[in-house]
């Protein structure tokens, strides 16, 4: 299968390993990767901030470039939800509405793609650590992804998954919310880190790097030894 990989801006810049791991995993499964390097961002920051017009400027480019693709995989639940669920809203009533719906139907978040579309759960990975999994809210609630990453993790050799308390509660990132209301965002993040630390895990794994960026930022400031890592990196670890 020819898989088009959409790499969100912050993964490209700050967390490239998540993208690299996704490429290596999918290629190992025998697929061809198409990386549309003229695309950088899905337009979510402007969208979430109320600037839908500016968001559309970015999103139209995504719509056009991804039009002729077979299937699109995104290594982030949040950007996945943006394209899958929010594009149809963003373009509702415009000439691009149809294109947004068509694209929506062929977009997958990475773990969902592996489990639901490809039917793969064992990637032969090895990661001898105790981990806990954080569900990014957009992946969880917009895309309904809950079991997929856990299925994948259950086949990683040596990995022990310990669920944290209040596992479905938000880490507090929320895009520009984290800068507009840093005190609330931080309080939420502190609760999240607290729940994760209570598990005694060495790593917090997630399918959303944006949450991990927030969590890692808090952990580093507090000097906590707990590390964050993207699901794709764990699955690519041998």
């Amino acid at each position: 299968m020819k898989i088009t990989l959409f790499i969100p801006c912050f993964i490209d810049a700050c967390f490239p390993k998540a993208g690299v791991s996704a490429v290596e995993i999918l290629e190992r499964l025998g697929h061809t990767i198409d990386y549309p390097k003229e695309l950088t961002c899905c337009g979510q920051p402007a969208f979430n901030s109320g600037y839908w017009e500016e968001s559309r400027t970015t999103a139209i480019k995504v719509l056009e470039r991804l039009k002729a693709t077979e299937v699109v995989v995104i290594v982030s639940g949040s950007c996945g939800a943006m394209i899958k669920n929010f594009y149809p809203e963003l373009f509702a009533g415009t000439e691009h509405e149809e294109a947004a719906r068509t694209l929506s139907a062929k977009v997958y978040e990475f773990s969902d793609f592996l489990v639901t579309k490809l039917g793969v759960t064992d990637l032969g990975a090895q990661f001898p650590h105790k981990v806990t999994f954080h569900d990014g809210c957009h992946g969880l609630r917009e895309l309904g992804i809950k079991q997929q990453p856990r299925k994948l993790l259950s086949h990683v050799r040596g990995l022990e998954l310990v669920e944290m308390g209040e596992v479905e509660s938000c880490c507090g990132f929320g895009g520009t919310f984290s800068a507009k209301f840093p005190m609330i965002s931080t309080a939420m993040g502190e609760n999240k880190c607290g729940s994760a630390l209570e598990t005694g895990a060495e790593y917090i794994v997630s399918n959303d790097s944006s949450c991990l960026m927030h969590i890692q930022g808090l952990l580093d400031r507090e000097g906590k030894p707990l590390r964050t890592i993207h699901l794709a990196e764990v699955l690519n670890h041998r």
Binding site: K37, K180, P182, R221
Partner: peptide, 21 residues
């Protein structure tokens, strides 16, 4: 400052994804 008051900033990687590609 809104971010760094309570959190560390992420760093731009030595090699971005597109550079790796």
């Amino acid at each position: 400052s809104a971010w760094t008051k309570s959190r560390e900033l992420p760093k731009i990687a030595p090699q971005t994804f597109r550079e790796w590609w």
